[in-house]
Write a protein that binds this DNA or RNA. Structure first.
Length: 275
DNA sequence: ACTCGTGTTAGCTG
DNA sequence: TCAGCTAACACGAG
């Protein structure tokens, strides 16, 4: 489920929907499309085209053009906790669904079985569609999303920015990593993974970390993101399989411990990450 | 049957 | 001002 690596894959799928004429938009789900009224997104997009698929942290957005070729509104897309992007068409060669993680989107509880779980969709003139398939309804489609509220993207944040932002508060370091206004893209699993990789206690006050510790954390974060994008998602992390009551640390064999940090379930190595 | 959760946001409390 | 808590969303997993 989506953190930065999954969203980057979803963004690449959205690119399959670029430069195709939008003939219809289903924005009737008023929760997924909040705060818009039904028809608002449709009125803004129909006749136009998506021209770019971008991402910052876990948020995606498309630049658009209107029917007459002038700049259109931005379309924001967020996967929430379990959303998928599915794009179909335009020709028989591409008539399979594509989504951001493995598996066939049309088998099991997919859009053919549960069409009502496609909470937002765009239909193109070629007959294909771009859909936000989202069982739990925690995702979002909206016009003109506020991207300024997000901190720098976790995959590209500079060392200086990382030191200042993450280290700039007494909150637990894990809470800083999860705060999308500090840096964007890190979710609960990725946070546990990188803290484990550098053997830092998740509860350490962030501003008490040394510069070397912050630099090491950023380095581990970038490596974890790259590896997750390559391997298919954050669930491929080395310590993620250890989120079980009887689990031991994959590195040293000590028991894994469970608690709450930054309001989220947190697992850490009882020996290497400070009890 | 019942609890928990890989995300976000608004509103409230200390 | 900051940090932490709760509820809401609606379903699957254990």
């Amino acid at each position: 489920m989506p953190e930065l690596p999954e969203v980057e894959r979803a963004r690449q799928v959205v690119e399959l929907g670029l430069h195709r004429v939008i003939t219809e938009v289903d924005d009737r789900d008023t929760y997924e499309c909040r705060p818009h009224q039904p028809g608002e997104i449709a009125a803004a997009l129909v006749g136009g085209q998506l021209t770019e698929a971008n991402r910052k942290g876990k948020s995606m957005w498309c630049e658009t053009v209107t029917a007459d070729g002038s700049v259109g509104p931005r379309l924001g897309l967020h996967l929430g906790m379990g959303g998928h992007i599915i794009v179909t068409g335009p020709s028989a060669d591409h008539a399979c669904g594509q989504r951001h993680s493995g598996g066939d989107p049309f088998v099991g509880a997919g859009p053919l079985d549960k069409p009502e779980w496609t909470r937002f969709s765009i239909t193109f003139g070629d007959g294909g569609q771009l859909g936000l398939f989202d069982k739990r309804r925690l995702g979002r489609a909206r016009l003109e999303p506020d991207l300024d509220a997000l901190g720098p993207d976790a995959a590209t944040i500079t060392r200086a920015e990382f030191r200042a932002r993450v280290g700039g508060s007494a909150a637990p370091v894990k809470a800083r990593l999860l705060d999308q206004a500090v840096l964007s893209g890190v979710g609960n699993l990725l946070a546990d993974e990188v803290l484990w990789r550098v053997a830092l206690a998740p509860t350490r006050p962030a501003k008490r970390l040394s510069t070397a510790e912050l630099d090491g954390l950023r380095r581990a974060l970038r490596a974890a993101i790259r590896s997750a994008i390559r391997l298919g998602g954050v669930h491929t992390g080395a310590v993620i399989g250890s989120r079980r009551a009887d689990a031991t640390c994959p590195r040293c064999g000590a028991p894994m411990r469970r608690g709450t940090v930054g309001g989220r379930t947190t697992w850490w190595c009882s020996a290497e990450q400070g009890g």
